[in-house]
Computed example of a mutant assay.
Amino acid sequence: MYNILLVDDDREYIDTIKLAIVTPGYRIVTEYNPIEALSRFTRESYDLVVTDYKMENIDGLRLIKTMKEIRPTVKIIMLTGYQAEDIEHIALNLKVDFFLSKEKSLEMINHYVLRILRDESSRKEETLFCSEAEGITADSKGYDVYKGERHIELTKKEFEVLLHFLRHKNRAFSRDEIIAELWTTEIEEIDPRVIDVHIRRIREKLQISSLVSIRGVGYKWNE
């Protein structure tokens, strides 16, 4: 499921865009007021924001700047009827993915949306492991963990234990199996109780209930 936020004070235009990009697996939300859009963005997670430049209250550039400060990785498409190069230059400096004229056809706009989310899907498949139930995203390349929009600090080994369970949801592992998978047992002598310590710290830091104890076995991620 990908979440898309469309922002434009031109209701007719943005509603038309919404109809053009409706695709299975996409949740599309429209906001006609950029301030309300920003408020929603702080409460909910979005993979892509499509916004107009010229709007009342705050313009699209200010909106994008604030959203990027909240979530730097969010993808952005800016649609505008003002093709001035100085606006485009600022947008690109804000790491807008595409700066498009509103004169483009709905088919082309939809093409850009699909391209961004297709690229994002490939990236996620390679590096990101998620739990929708817990609102957790773990980046295997950057060793970053987010609970919603909040970055959680884990040690390297805590991260590896978490990632192991996110990769193998609903499968029970004994302590010895976890050690064999994540430690170099040929050169390390690991007390199985160290797994309990890592699990406890992960639960405390992430405030999760999905990582459960299985009496007589070990642990499992229920989802």
Rank of each mutant, 00 (worst) to 15 (best):
S174M: 12
S105C: 04
D59H: 09
L79Q: 12
I199K: 05
T184L: 04
E125N: 14
E88V: 05
I4R: 09
T16G: 15
V22G: 02
E177I: 07
Q83M: 15
Y2A: 12
R167A: 03
L154Q: 04
I58T: 11
L211A: 01
Q83S: 15
D144R: 13
N57R: 13
M1E: 12
G60Q: 13
K124E: 15
S140T: 14
A138H: 10
F41T: 04
K169D: 02
I195P: 07
M55A: 04
H89R: 15
D196P: 08
I76G: 08
D191V: 00
E158S: 05
F129I: 07
V217I: 15
E132R: 13
A91N: 08
M55P: 08
V22E: 15
G218K: 00
L48I: 06
R115G: 01
L106A: 06
T137M: 14
K65T: 06
V113W: 04
L117A: 05
N222F: 09
E158Y: 05
F98M: 02
S45H: 08
S210H: 01
N170W: 08
K65G: 06
H164N: 09
I136V: 13
H89S: 12
T16I: 07
I208E: 03
D10G: 01
S209H: 07
H168R: 14
D86W: 12
S39R: 08
V29T: 15
L38F: 14
S131I: 10
D8S: 07
A37D: 11
D144W: 09
K65I: 01
P24C: 02
V212Y: 00
V212C: 00
S174Y: 06
A133T: 11
R115H: 10
I199G: 05
R203T: 00
H89A: 09
H168D: 09
Y82D: 15
M55F: 01
T30I: 08
